[in-house]
Amino acid sequence: MSKAVKVICGANEQEGAAGSTVKETRNNFQEVLNIPKNAEAFVGGKKVKEGHVLAEGDSLEFIKPAGDKG
């Protein structure tokens, strides 16, 4: 599979694989990107479900919750 998907969470990003689902990508990058369990997934600015299959060139963002402390 090609490495042609940008996977983003907060300030960090990694390269993911086109053809993977959002759920698979979440599992693969949960630790390295510290993806919160309840983080919603957006592709191209639109919310997607866990079964959504990523295409080459997609930018998948797991939305990190806003910092709550200060």
Binding site: G10, A11, N34, K64, A66, G67, D68, K69, G70
Partner: peptide
Amino acid sequence: SGGNSFTDGNIQ
């Protein structure tokens, strides 16, 4: 608006 967790944060 700014806020943080222990080692990360954001502004809006």
